[in-house]
């Protein structure tokens, strides 16, 4: 079969990475926030905030690095609102999450309309870092080891978070904030500060994922461009049951299906893209149906912590 030429396989694998990295960052961020007890439904909005801020700064300063930094900051900004309303004031996390998503959708689309409705500027291609040696492996090398620095960062975060949760005091405190906030409080730690830190960290990661979509993926900002990627991040975090490595596996699976439809079209297989896009969700629902018992979420997830309340 001549279909599976090297170039085709490289493009296929590179597509999986491009679609999977924003999902990985969103999933890791949501996992961090959920471990600390904040169900962050607003990550779709944080992603859009990051995508917009990242694109704007990268375009205005002509610096890709500053663009990614601004993307993380854009996500952080939306997350700061989440901290104020849900951690500090203890409002309902689902309501505020949906409000932040709607607000970010509207605000970024509006700002884009005011600034770029006639121009639609495009960013230049993002330079890649070639890892000597590894990049020379056939097929896997060019797709995986000759990439934008953000890809390496996202991959490096997986063992880093595993270490954080397993081995550090801070990781323990984060998980206590989600499971037994009152116990953490008694131990003299500041529950609200730890939750705030986790949500802000989540915002920065998710914003970086959004910036990856606009700067490295599309090269433009389009209103509503995150297209449910944040919600998939929530799904990944819940399926991963607290393990960063599982987020990576899930992101690879979903990334493969999201990019698979384009690859199939290139290969000349005529299936509506909708069918391929259904595959990961169908697979996950099937897994849940067969082995769904105990999603194992932090016990204080979604509940605001108020000192002294039973």
């Amino acid at each position: 079969m001549t279909l599976f030429t090297d170039t085709f396989l490289i493009a296929l694998l590179a597509g999986v990475v491009a679609a999977g990295v924003p999902l990985l960052l969103a999933g890791l961020g949501e996992q961090l926030s959920e471990k600390a007890g904040v169900l962050n439904v607003g990550i779709e909005g944080m992603m859009l905030g990051g995508a917009y801020a990242g694109f704007l700064v990268a375009w205005a300063t002509e610096s890709i690095g500053l663009g990614f930094l601004a993307g993380a900051f854009g996500g952080l900004l939306v997350a700061a609102l989440m901290v104020l309303f849900c951690v500090r004031l203890g409002l309902n996390q689902v309501v505020i999450g949906i409000a932040l998503t709607l607000g970010a959708e509207g605000t970024t689309a509006l700002l884009h309309h005011v600034q770029f409705s006639r121009l639609y500027p495009r960013l230049p291609e993002v330079p890649t870092w070639r890892i000597p040696g590894l990049a020379d492996i056939p097929i896997v090398g060019p797709a995986l080891f000759d990439r934008e620095p953000v890809v390496y960062l996202a991959l490096a975060l997986v063992p880093l978070f595993a270490w954080l949760y397993r081995r550090t005091h801070l990781g323990l405190a984060i998980q206590a904030a989600g499971d037994k906030p009152a116990a953490l409080d008694s131990a003299g730690e500041n529950v609200l500060a730890i939750r705030a830190l986790a949500v802000l960290g989540c915002g920065a990661l998710v914003g970086l994922g959004g910036a990856f979509m606009s700067i490295a993926g599309a090269g433009v900002f389009v209103p509503f461009m995150t297209h449910g990627n944040g919600f998939i991040g929530i799904v990944l975090a819940m399926l991963a049951r607290g393990r960063p490595l599982w987020v990576l596996l899930g992101a690879a699976l979903f990334g493969a299906c999201l990019s698979g439809s384009t690859a199939l079209q290139v290969a000349g297989v005529d299936i509506p893209t909708d069918v391929v896009q259904m595959l990961p969700f169908a697979a996950v629902m099937l897994v849940l149906l067969i082995a769904g018992r105990n999603a194992k979420l932090p016990s204080a997830l979604g509940a605001a912590y108020v000192r002294g309340e039973r």
Partner: peptide, 20 residues
């Protein structure tokens, strides 16, 4: 019967159903 959080399942059924 399995105690699976409905936010995640309804969101997934949402993606699935829109495509279907």
């Amino acid at each position: 019967y399995q105690g699976v959080n409905e936010i995640i399942t309804t969101l997934m059924m949402n993606f699935l159903g829109i495509s279907l």
